[in-house]
């Protein structure tokens, strides 16, 4: 799985409340509408600026807070193809893989807003094409990578009827 896109930068500790604020709780009944407010409390302009294929590069502890699966879902619906961060909160990380949104841990200090990056998800390599640099990344654990490659946990379960830990 290779992904190429333009980067939007965010800082540390972007919470699930930044990503999908509680005041839009009622819009969970209409996720397309909910997605129109994606990342609104981190950058009010983001929902208008983001284009399909774009990539988020954030600091540490991205997605901390609530278990709301809507957080990765609205990011995916907005067209974002991958999230890079120095680290992820665990529930968010698992939710993102479950819904088929690649999340890669790497040193995002070497990426600026507007840079074009290319990601090899299997190998865990991030290339900053703008700066001509290769950034080492932590690979996704094998079982989670399989879920991601299946297209998410829903597809994984459809395929195997169960959790398939081993190849």
């Amino acid at each position: 799985m290779r992904i190429k896109g333009r980067v939007w930068k965010f800082g540390d500790n972007i919470s699930t409340d930044h990503i999908t604020p509680g005041r839009y709780f009622h819009l969970r009944s209409n996720i397309q509408e909910l997605a129109r407010h994606v990342m609104e409390d981190a950058d009010p302009e983001f929902p208008r600026k983001v284009k399909p294929g774009d990539i988020i590069a954030a600091g540490k502890n991205f997605g901390l807070g609530s278990s709301r699966e809507y957080a990765p879902r609205v990011i995916k619906i907005s067209g974002v193809s991958c999230i890079l961060a120095k680290s992820f909160a665990r529930i968010f990380y698992r939710n993102a893989i479950n819904i088929g949104l690649p999340v890669i841990t790497c040193d995002t200090d070497r990426i600026d807003e507007g840079d074009e990056v290319e990601i090899d998800v299997e190998k865990g390599i991030v290339r900053n094409l703008t700066k001509g640099e290769e950034i080492p990344a932590s690979p996704i654990p094998p079982f989670m990578l399989r879920i991601l490659e299946d297209g998410g946990i829903e597809e994984h379960i459809k395929k195997y009827g169960d959790f398939r830990l081993e190849e």
Partner: peptide, 23 residues
């Protein structure tokens, strides 16, 4: 539990953890 504070029950010596809706 599909709520991040599911870990509360850990004080009873249970392994309790929050997950997303699909999990």
């Amino acid at each position: 539990g599909a709520d991040s504070h599911t870990c509360t029950a850990g004080a009873l010596g249970a392994f309790a953890t929050g997950m997303g809706s699909t999990d």
